[in-house]
Computed example of a mutant assay.
Amino acid sequence: MDQLLAAFRAHPTRPPSASEAARMVGEDVLDLLIARGDLVRVSADVLFLPETYAQMVERIQALIRERGSVTVAEVRDQLETSRKYAVALLEHLDERRITRRVGDARVLR
């Protein structure tokens, strides 16, 4: 578990995928880490540390307040992550009703 969490800390905005994490510690341990709140699942294969998740959500909200809306590419660039993680995070925020997709952009609800 310590090695896995260290891997998440080493690359907070580009962490191991859920499938990679499961290979490292097993499905049961991964499920436990998620249930305990040590990791936040935003999609089937994307997980973040809770502090990274909170910081990214705050940055996205601030960007939208500043610009009116954001695109996947803008989030990817601002968070220094990949499109895979930016899309998963934005879709998660849409599901949580924090953001709403309007065309190719996201706005705050």
Rank of each mutant, 00 (worst) to 15 (best):
3 Q>A: 11
67 R>W: 09
19 S>R: 15
92 H>D: 06
43 S>W: 07
102 V>C: 09
82 S>V: 12
70 V>E: 00
86 A>K: 01
84 K>N: 07
109 R>H: 14
68 G>V: 12
94 D>G: 13
70 V>C: 06
7 A>L: 05
7 A>K: 13
3 Q>Y: 08
6 A>K: 15
108 L>T: 04
91 E>H: 15
91 E>Y: 15
66 E>M: 14
99 T>Q: 05
45 D>H: 14
108 L>R: 11
55 Q>F: 09
23 R>L: 11
103 G>I: 05
51 E>I: 08
82 S>K: 14
2 D>G: 14
37 G>D: 10
109 R>D: 14
15 P>S: 09
13 T>E: 12
86 A>D: 05
9 R>S: 12
35 A>P: 07
101 R>L: 12
22 A>G: 08
39 L>Q: 01
14 R>C: 10
63 L>Q: 04
48 F>P: 02
40 V>D: 04
58 E>L: 14
25 V>H: 09
53 Y>P: 06
65 R>L: 08
70 V>G: 03
9 R>Q: 13
51 E>M: 04
36 R>H: 10
80 E>R: 15
93 L>R: 08
25 V>W: 02
63 L>A: 10
34 I>G: 14
71 T>N: 04
32 L>I: 05
4 L>Y: 12
102 V>S: 11
63 L>H: 05
95 E>Y: 00
41 R>G: 00
83 R>P: 02
12 P>Q: 07
42 V>G: 02
42 V>D: 00
71 T>Q: 06
24 M>R: 15
64 I>N: 02
22 A>D: 09
108 L>F: 06
56 M>N: 10
5 L>M: 15
90 L>S: 07
55 Q>T: 12
40 V>C: 01
1 M>K: 09
100 R>G: 03
105 A>I: 00
50 P>Y: 12
71 T>K: 01
61 Q>S: 15
39 L>G: 01
8 F>Q: 13
70 V>T: 02
32 L>K: 09
5 L>W: 08
92 H>G: 01
78 Q>H: 14
15 P>F: 02
88 A>I: 08
93 L>A: 12
56 M>I: 04
88 A>H: 14
63 L>E: 00
96 R>T: 11
34 I>Q: 06
4 L>A: 10
67 R>K: 15
46 V>Q: 03
17 S>Q: 01
59 R>S: 05
75 V>L: 01
105 A>V: 11
14 R>H: 10
58 E>V: 14
91 E>K: 15
30 L>P: 06
12 P>T: 07
46 V>N: 02
60 I>V: 15
102 V>N: 07
106 R>L: 01
108 L>C: 05
77 D>P: 01
55 Q>I: 00
42 V>P: 03
55 Q>P: 00
18 A>V: 00
84 K>F: 13
80 E>W: 11
97 R>N: 13
87 V>D: 05
14 R>F: 10
11 H>I: 07
69 S>M: 10
30 L>Y: 11
33 L>Q: 08
36 R>V: 05
28 D>A: 15
88 A>G: 10
3 Q>D: 06
45 D>W: 12
63 L>T: 09
18 A>R: 12
81 T>C: 06
46 V>A: 12
13 T>M: 11
72 V>S: 00
17 S>A: 06
92 H>R: 10
68 G>L: 04
10 A>V: 10
9 R>H: 11
88 A>R: 14
40 V>R: 13
85 Y>N: 15
84 K>M: 03
61 Q>W: 03
41 R>D: 00
100 R>T: 06
9 R>W: 03
7 A>V: 09
62 A>Q: 13
15 P>E: 07
3 Q>L: 08
71 T>G: 06
